[in-house]
């Protein structure tokens, strides 16, 4: 089933930002807690689905020469919607994500999917592709957020994990922890893939 494949590739062969090394800035910046990671992931997923659908609907109308500008306008419009909704209903989250909400506009994953997928495929595939990639992105953000929150603050969703005797690694809440955490996760995934391929060859 093609539709299932388009959905599941977001978690497997094209899992952003590990398999598709794009959109690193929000990944590094907002993953200080799981909650922020999931909030950012949901916002990005919404923009990704909507922009994929609209770009796919307009794909025969948009002239190829100005397509990038058109895609950017489509994406920016949905980002403005997300910005307003977040300010109205999730004010604390929108404060802690700060300028990274308007910066969803320049998240290369969204423009990348519009250009590489939505502009060439039918609407339902484009929507499913957006959903899959978006949820994969959210999952990655949540995992990195969990690692950084547990190590950097000793909490998970704000609840204490290790008890009061645990001294948190403040480093993981700051910028170096973001880079090192993401690098290490990427390394572990590569190592796991290699291990699995070798096991498959021996079998």
């Amino acid at each position: 089933m093609r539709i299932v494949r388009e959905f599941s590739k977001g978690f497997t062969t094209q899992l952003p930002p590990f398999r598709l090394v794009l959109g690193l800035c929000p990944v590094l910046a907002v993953t200080t807690t799981v909650e922020n990671g999931i909030g950012m992931g949901l916002a990005t997923t919404f923009v990704l689905i909507c922009s994929n659908v609209l770009v796919s609907l307009l794909r025969k109308i948009i002239p190829p020469k100005v397509r990038i500008a058109c895609f950017v306008v489509v994406i920016a419009s949905f980002v403005v919607i997300v910005e307003m909704v977040m300010k109205a209903f999730f004010f604390p989250l929108s404060q802690s994500l700060g300028i990274f909400i308007p910066l969803i506009v320049v998240n290369c994953i969204i423009l990348g999917r519009a250009e590489a997928f939505a502009a060439k495929n039918a609407v339902h595939y484009a929507a499913v592709d957006g959903l899959g990639i978006g949820l994969g992105f959210m999952l990655s953000l949540a995992v990195l957020g969990a690692v950084r929150e547990i190590l950097g603050a000793g909490t998970f969703f704000g609840a204490s994990v290790f008890g009061s005797s645990f001294e948190p690694f403040a480093l993981f809440a700051k910028a170096p922890g973001a880079f090192i955490g993401l690098g290490t996760l990427l390394f572990l995934m590569n190592a796991f893939d290699r291990f699995r391929n070798r096991a498959r060859q021996n079998a």
Binding site: V21, L171, K174, A175, P176, G177, A178, F179, I180, L182, G183, T184, L186, F187, N190, A191, D193, R194
Partner: peptide, 22 residues
């Protein structure tokens, strides 16, 4: 090491640089 090549080692190096800038 092969699994670390390219982006992974790049990110970890950036982390160490960021530590220095801290």
């Amino acid at each position: 090491p092969q699994p670390l090549q390219d982006t992974a080692i790049g990110l970890i190096t950036a982390g160490l640089m960021s530590l220095a800038f801290l």
